[in-house]
């Protein structure tokens, strides 16, 4: 059965490591919905978060093939029900009237977003949350006219004591 799987890889922070990972996924014909990368608590180690669509066999292959990359140190699958999944989006919205401006500020508050930039005819809203929440906010903003959207892609962390460590 096709599902969305959340994979976290700890990788050595070297030039080309993202190309190795993304190239592998392409060459093996895997479907990736989202991929993001950032630093970790360990110097020299970065963390890549991927969402992969496929059945169990596909997921297993993705993880095994990733593990074969020399610069990939650790690969884990996280269960979305036991994890915090977040994405950050910056949305630049047209605000042609005072009324529109007030409404956007109100919506941003309801969604616990923040206004991070104000100009004469536009505002930038920063919103964080799971995919549904970010998507819902974007839909609301469409009525005002969206000038630009920048999304980070999803990142994920297990709740509680479990964590993705270099060695277990």
């Amino acid at each position: 059965m096709e599902n969305t799987h959340y994979i976290v890889a700890l990788v050595e922070d070297r030039p080309g490591v993202m190309q190795r990972v993304s190239g592998l996924l392409r060459k093996r014909n895997f479907n990736i919905d989202s991929i993001s990368v950032g630093a970790t608590e360990i110097p020299g180690i970065s963390r890549i978060t991927m969402t992969v669509r496929g059945d169990r066999v596909t997921l297993e292959q993705v993880m095994k093939q990733l593990n074969k990359l020399i610069e990939v140190v650790k690969v884990s699958e996280l269960n979305p029900r036991e994890s915090v999944i977040r994405e950050l989006a910056l949305i630049k919205v047209n605000v042609k009237s005072e009324g529109a401006r007030a409404e956007v500020v109100q919506y941003a508050n309801i969604f616990r977003g923040r206004i991070v930039d104000v100009a004469k005819h536009s505002m930038v809203v920063e919103i964080t949350g799971d995919e549904d929440k970010v998507q819902a906010f974007i839909e609301l903003m469409r009525g005002y006219g969206i000038k630009e959207i920048a999304r980070t892609g999803k990142t994920i962390m297990a709740r509680g004591a479990k964590s993705v460590k270099l060695r277990e």
């Binding site: 030039p15 190309q19 020399i70 610069e71």
Partner: peptide, 16 residues
Amino acid sequence: VIGITMPITKHNFQIR
């Protein structure tokens, strides 16, 4: 050559 041979090597290095 690093980009070209990534999918056909077990690993590759460029000396920096």
